[in-house]
Design a binder for these strands. Sequence first.
DNA 1: GCTAATCTAATCACCTTCTAGGTGATTAGCACATTAGC
Length: 176
Amino acid sequence: CCSETTPVNHRRSRTKFTQDQLKILIKAFDKNPYPGYATKQKLALEANTEESRIQIWFQNRRARHQKKSEPDEDLESSQDQDHLEEEIQSREDRRSRTNYTSLQLHALIEAFSNNPYPGFDSREQLAKEIGVPESRVQIWFQNRRSRFHAQRKSIEATQNGPSLSISCLIFPEPEQ
DNA sequence: GCTAATCTAATCACCTTCTAGGTGATTAGCACATTAGC
């Protein structure tokens, strides 16, 4: 069901943060490793970069930070409480939902059927075409793939193994 | 080797519409996710 017309599947080029940008980000991370959308936008403005890059930086930083830091009982009580409160606050501060029009959805679904793993250039082109940020297109594809996988699994479970009827739910894995 | 970019899976949160299903946003990743550019 998926065409072979795969566009150039390049990643986004690596962002090289300057020392000044890192200083801003690290300071913000130490204050709250789970910033809300407004904070991330503010940081993006301050560091002169995109909000989506700020989000990725915090994700990676949290992953590395958690690996390094051992559980420290001494700090747990008060600091955890602070972090919990900050986390709850940040969760109130999500990005507002993107409401796609039927035309936008049509374009997304068509692009997905052609290539469920579009590279940065393809995502950006599609984003321009439908008038949404590239980062929203990336999220849409992530959710779409994830729900396709889940749907496929659930069908396999009910049918006790793969069958022809779900062939359209199978799409190629990303290129190495 | 460090780390930005990317992935899946699980979960949260909101909307539509009637209580649950659909879906965008966010998060973790555990013998501590993987991939890949610099």
